[in-house]
C-alpha cells in the first residue's frame, strides 16, 4: 500500500503509522459528560467501506487524515490534519 503525504508525495506503507479512525480529532470539551469521552475514546462506526483514518508520516512528522476503503484498501484522499475539516 502507498499513501500520499502532502509534504512528501506517495510513499510506502512502511513509513507510516496508523492510529485508527479519525474520530480522535473530535475531542470533547473538558466539561463534556463521561459518555462523550467514552464514545470519543472507544466507540467506533468501524465501517466496512469508505473510512477516514489518522496516519502519521514518520519521516516528516505530518499527521494525515486519509480517506481509504477498508474493504478494497483503495486510497482516495489525504490531507494534513492541520488542513482537514
Amino acid at each position: 500500500m502507498r499513501l500520499p503525504c502532502p509534504c512528501c508525495g506517495w510513499r510506502d506503507l512502511r513509513e507510516f503509522t496508523c492510529i485508527g479512525a479519525a474520530d480522535y480529532l473530535e475531542r470533547p470539551t473538558a466539561d463534556a459528560p463521561p459518555e462523550a469521552w467514552d464514545a470519543y475514546l472507544h466507540v467506533r462506526d468501524n465501517p466496512a467501506g469508505p473510512a477516514r483514518e489518522l496516519w502519521y508520516h514518520d519521516p516528516c512528522g505530518t499527521w494525515l487524515v486519509v480517506e481509504r476503503d477498508t474493504v478494497m484498501h483503495a486510497v482516495t484522499g489525504s490531507r494534513a490534519v492541520e488542513d482537514a475539516q
Binding site: 503509522t17 492510529i19 480522535y24 480529532l25 475531542r27 489518522l54 502519521y56 514518520d58 512528522g61 505530518t62 499527521w63 494534513a80 490534519v81 492541520e82
Partner: peptide, 20 residues
C-alpha cells in the same frame, strides 16, 4: 512521545505558534 506531541499540536492546536 514525539509522535504524540505532533498529534496534539496538529490536531488540537491549529494556529498556535510553536514548533517541535
Amino acid at each position: 512521545v514525539m509522535r504524540h506531541l505532533e498529534f496534539v499540536q496538529q490536531a488540537f492546536c491549529r494556529g498556535w505558534q510553536l514548533r517541535l
